[in-house]
């Protein structure tokens, strides 16, 4: 999978960025805020101190893995919009394992928590995958339905016997220290989860572009009939890719629980799923370019939160910005494809 980037294409993208941010400034001005202060807050806050950088990287890690969970099935033209539910199931798995098996030594408890997260994520993807395999049920519909079920499952756990009764918001008691992912920079939230995400990301790039499995995924995505006529089991492959996506989303949930919140919290999935879809489509699912687009989307997300906190700009500006950018990227692509 070679990424062909020529100067003209890069220019189109740069132009798209410029227009999007120009529009943001204009919007701020129109709403009566100072655009200069706005830009400063937007770009500086995420990096102003170690703590901020820590929060940035936590978000980056989750968004990246969520993007990957969407990107891998995308190779086979399957749309895993269920990464939200799979993320939550991963979080549940990690939290429950981290509480119940927290007594075990760290080198057992921590991997166990992460494996549970992956397994539950896979399980959550496996059901739609089976429905796809057996009855050809469209994965977009079925995975969304499973997202809804997952919200109630989270409530069930966070309000059940593991509930933290002292907290106002539904959440579980913390996982034991042994199950936590170690921080790599003291006094911050920067934890080894980031390293795991990078390794998994590079690994996925290799799987997709350098293995026969990845080849078959891409072939099936490009032309299922030709693939089948040349011996690729498309019927099996597409569901498998969904299950793999499930493992990745589950891992994202597990890392966020064991490396940052240390517990399951209702609503912790935030806007991860829609953002992850946007950032994946921006780079057409290339796992390496995904690092770039995730960085950028995280910046927009964190930056707009900062705008809201310090200047009172509604946080929805991030969605406006991303939506506009996505649109511009699509136009840029059209222009660079046009002959």
């Amino acid at each position: 999978m070679k990424t062909v980037l020529n100067v003209r294409v890069l220019l189109y993208y740069a132009f798209a960025l410029l227009v999007a941010f120009g529009f943001m400034g204009t919007l701020l001005l129109a709403l009566g805020y100072s655009p200069i202060n706005g830009y400063a807050t937007f770009f500086k806050t995420p990096f102003m101190n170690l703590r901020a950088i820590g929060l940035f990287l936590v978000k980056f890690t989750s968004l990246y893995l969520m993007g990957l969970a969407f990107a891998v099935p995308l190779q086979a033209r399957k749309f895993n919009v269920g990464n939200e539910g799979q993320f939550l199931l991963g979080a549940i798995g990690a939290a429950v394992a981290g509480i119940y098996f927290g007594g075990l030594p760290s080198f057992v408890a921590l991997p166990l928590g992460l494996i549970m997260a992956c397994l539950l994520g896979m399980l959550w993807a496996a059901m739609p995958a089976f429905m796809l395999f057996l009855f050809n049920v469209n994965e977009i519909v079925s995975t969304i339905l499973f997202n809804f079920i997952s919200f109630y499952l989270v409530d069930y756990i966070a309000l059940g016997s593991l509930r933290d009764v002292f907290a106002g918001h539904p959440m579980t008691i913390p996982v034991s220290n042994n199950a936590r992912i170690p921080t790599i920079v003291p006094q911050t939230n920067i934890n080894a989860g980031l390293v795991i995400a990078i390794i998994v990301g590079v690994g996925m790039y290799i799987v997709v572009s350098r293995t026969t499995y990845g080849y078959e995924l891409r072939a099936a995505g490009s032309n299922p009939i030709a693939s089948e006529k040349h011996g690729i089991n498309v019927k099996l492959l597409a569901p498998l890719s969904l299950i793999m996506g499930g493992a990745l989303a589950g891992l994202a949930g597990g890392i966020e629980v064991l490396g940052y919140h240390y517990r399951l919290i209702e609503g912790m999935h935030g806007f991860y799923s829609p953002l992850s879809i946007i950032l994946t489509l921006m780079v057409k699912g290339n796992p390496l370019l995904l690092f770039l687009s995730t960085f950028f989307v995280t910046l927009v997300d964190v930056g707009s939160n900062a705008l809201q906190r310090t200047m009172g700009v509604p946080v929805e500006i991030s969605l406006i910005l991303l939506g506009l950018l996505m649109l511009l990227i699509m136009i840029a692509e059209y222009l660079s494809e046009r002959r």
Partner: peptide
């Protein structure tokens, strides 16, 4: 177009379809 090519993939990927394993 229907049975042979992988239109969105590069020529080198197309050249091994069926032999890729």
């Amino acid at each position: 177009v229907r049975d042979g090519a992988l239109p969105s993939l590069p020529i080198f990927d197309n050249s091994i379809l069926g032999d890729h394993v």
